[in-house]
Design a protein around this nucleic acid. Structure first.
Lengths: 340, 340
DNA sequence: ATCGGCCATGTAAAGGTTTACACAATGTTC
DNA sequence: GAACATTGTGTAAACCTTTACATGGCCGAT
């Protein structure tokens, strides 16, 4: 309600009877100013309610204290808890977090590129699975960057995420241990690196169980709810039906469950389904979904930690941190007793 | 990859052989500069790849071109599509959108307050339903603000959202038209203004149908999935069961459906359930949820438009814009034929 | 007593932009 | 052809910080 302009460093200096340089030092390098002076300055800050003008600071320093997190869709159920991890770590180190939303729109991506080029963000976190700026970034100066959740296909960018292969292997082994021998894999094994890796976990587990490749059923699916439903339709048009569905993520699993339910099957009696991600919704599905849990906040936290490290030492290092996920057993998988 | 510093206005000026003032004018007030000069400047901009340094600009102007959107939880399934509306409108007017995430943590709120106080955002959009800064904001200078989705309880803040009362009334009338006479309302009728308004729609419809207050069943619930489940438990501990559940939002409806399914009931044969919001998940519930659709992107767009208006004319006007929602009929409501 | 070094502080420049004001050239009016 | 308005451009200040460098005082060593 007060309409006074916000206090500047000069107001503080006047009140504390020092120069503005001393005020700045009292804030950023307190040991370089005498104790008595420091106290006077702190008092003056308290009285005036002074807050550093972030814009002036960034301008002078040539670097902001903001981190840009870029996602195609912030509605992704995985996004919010990863973000919390990022934020907590960022805040602990004096950085703010800015969220950008590309909607896979190149024009929007370009806007954010401009944003980055005017130094408005000190670092970048990608939640995209691909380069968000077309290929223009090659010609541009990008700040230190780390990708989370999904590795960036074919680019040299640091990455923090789950160990997809190991997680998928756990899931497949669980299905095998439940007696399933005919297990479908539904996902995109071509363009999405995360999917490719999960597929590898599936192959590894089935190899180890000596299940021949031709007894495996692999159906393409981009990872959406709809793709799960379509996969079910495709399978029914074929001859051999699996006893279990291993889905590349929970969204696909939702589609599979829906497709199966729509055809009148009773789950998990007739078919077993397993997902990957453990989104909040998984608990409320019918049956509750057995799935692999993403250590989401750990991913966020570690990604930010890595970014901070890269910010501190501007070498061009590229690191990949993989976190081991846990299998969460709920009710969507039962043992296969019937022959199919 | 190029390690050159980004081009400044001075680089452009030199190349175009004009002063930096002219460059600035060519960008912001093109009609004040001669056509030939303008062309030379634009060419120089294209060659250098110049982008205005937003920090310098904001510093000079005393106002940033960022809008802060504050939400307690960006995982809220309603949030992302409202945000899209906000973003589209903001972008069209040269503003960027910054998303803040309070997690209902006062300390975090305070951080954002500092952020606002250092002029880093020109406007504020609240997705909170309450004042996010404790009550400190009374003593502070806040930028123009508008609340979306949920009105701010007891505060004079502009608001853009759905017409809760009318929407809830539509829902209740639909249940009545399907023959239901014993309809439970589950929500928080005390502290959440949005819930209060939806409750009012319920009362209005039932009044009009001359259903006596004691035949109405109102159960408290904060609006979470869990609260829906708890409400079901409470109802079973009482004597009279409703034939239909009117839930204050879809999350509550998910809980109700789960609670009912857990008790072995078959929906919608045994009970009807109706929600409010139409979150993405509603389609995939079993049965698919009949609900009231929030015009989310319209809310976002209009909220931003209102904010821009307030930005342009800094009068202290407070407006409330209510948008009429539609009823989305799916499969969770059937006609009540059985006596209960 | 003199000198060197350290400590605390101040002075001033720089960062990139916008814009009030000044100025010159051109066009308009009588 | 003089007075004046209009148009286009440049000069310089201001926005608020941080920090290299300068300054002055004081202490300890010689």
């Amino acid at each position: 309600m007060s309409n006074a302009a916000p206090a500047t460093i000069e107001d503080v200096a006047r009140l504390a009877e020092v120069s503005i340089a001393t005020v700045s030092r009292a804030i950023h390098t307190p040991d370089k100013v005498a104790k008595s002076t420091r106290q006077r300055v702190n008092q003056a800050i308290a009285i005036t309610g002074y807050t550093t003008n972030a814009m002036a600071r960034s301008l002078r320093m040539g670097r902001s204290n903001m981190i840009l997190v870029l996602a195609p869709d912030i509605g992704d159920p995985n996004f919010s808890s990863i973000l919390i991890g990022i934020e907590n770590e960022a805040r602990a180190h004096g950085y703010g977090v800015l969220i950008g939303h590309t909607q896979n729109d190149p024009e929007r991506g370009l806007d954010y590129l401009k944003f980055l080029n005017s130094n408005q963000a000190a670092g970048l976190v990608l939640f995209t699975g691909h380069e968000p700026f077309g290929h223009q970034e090659l010609a541009q100066r990008l700040p230190p960057t780390v990708a989370v959740f999904e590795p960036v296909f074919g680019a040299k960018v640091s990455y923090v995420g789950v160990d997809d292969t190991a997680g998928a292997r756990k899931a497949a082994e669980y299905l095998l241990a439940s007696g399933h021998r005919s297990i479908a894999f539904i996902g995109d094994s071509k363009t999405k690196l995360g999917h490719v890796r999960r597929r590898k976990g599936y192959d590894l587990a089935l190899d180890a169980a000596r299940i021949t490749p031709d007894k495996r059923i692999v159906i393409d699916g981009e990872g959406s709810v709809e793709s799960g439903r379509l996969a079910v339709e495709q399978l029914f048009m074929r001859d051999t039906l699996p006893s279990a569905f291993m889905c590349v993520n929970d969204a696909t699993a939702v589609g599979v469950i829906n497709g199966l339910a729509a055809r009148g099957y009773d789950l998990p009696r007739d078919f077993s389904v397993i997902g990957f991600d453990d989104v909040a919704q998984a608990t409320y599905l019918n049956p509750p979904l057995t799935t692999v849990r993403q250590p989401r906040s750990a991913i966020g936290r570690q990604a930010m930690a890595l970014l901070l490290k890269q910010l501190a030492e501007p070498g061009e290092s590229v690191e990949e941190i993989l976190i081991m996920p846990d299998l969460i057993v709920r009710g969507s998988v039962t043992s296969a007793m019937r022959s199919r």
